[in-house]
Amino acid sequence: MSTHTDVFAERLRAVGGVPHMVRAPGLLDAVAGLIDAHQPVLLTPQTAWLASGLDEWGIESVVTSDPPAVLESALRRCGAGVTGCVAAAASTGTVLVGPEGVGGGLASSLPERHVVLLRETDIHAALGDVLSVLVERFGDLDGEAVLITGPSRTADIEMMSVVGVHGPLSLDVVVILAEST
């Protein structure tokens, strides 16, 4: 693993997220294990390819670009959302999640558990590098792009840090390790 990856994992833990290191062949098992009972799972057009594999695990999935009627019946029940990610910053443990097609933002904001798929090669050293990626690729990121740093949190009552408010209660980042490492 590269130094960036180590730092990223450490910073992610510091903000309450959980890193998982996997090699490409083990990706589906890892995602299925994280979703477990948090069904149905909300996928975006970009992660929709996971649907058939998850189905074999007996995991029900809905894609955010499915017809409104399908989505409406699933949104109240969905327990997890899986998205990809454009880039990550080691310095802050941040992932940059793009719009990922129709309705993509729902998968990272509504369910209790958010699982992010991150390629190790997309981890940059600093937040500034990720912001540069955001600027360079803004044309493709039209819609909503979001920097996510840990699960939702608040400190509005006596400055006591509480994890899990309106957004996801947990954030798992599955880092797909590069072949050479």
Binding site: R11, V15, T64, P68, L71, S91, T92, T94, P99, G101, V102, G103, G104, G105, L106, L127, L134, L141, D142, G143, E144, A145, V146, L147, I148, T149, G150, P151, S152, R153, G167
Partner: peptide
């Protein structure tokens, strides 16, 4: 915080129907 949990960059109307 080094960064808040979310920084949203919203351009145009959301894609959700």
């Amino acid at each position: 915080q080094l960064l808040t949990s979310y920084v949203s960059f919203i351009t145009g109307t959301p894609s959700t129907p």
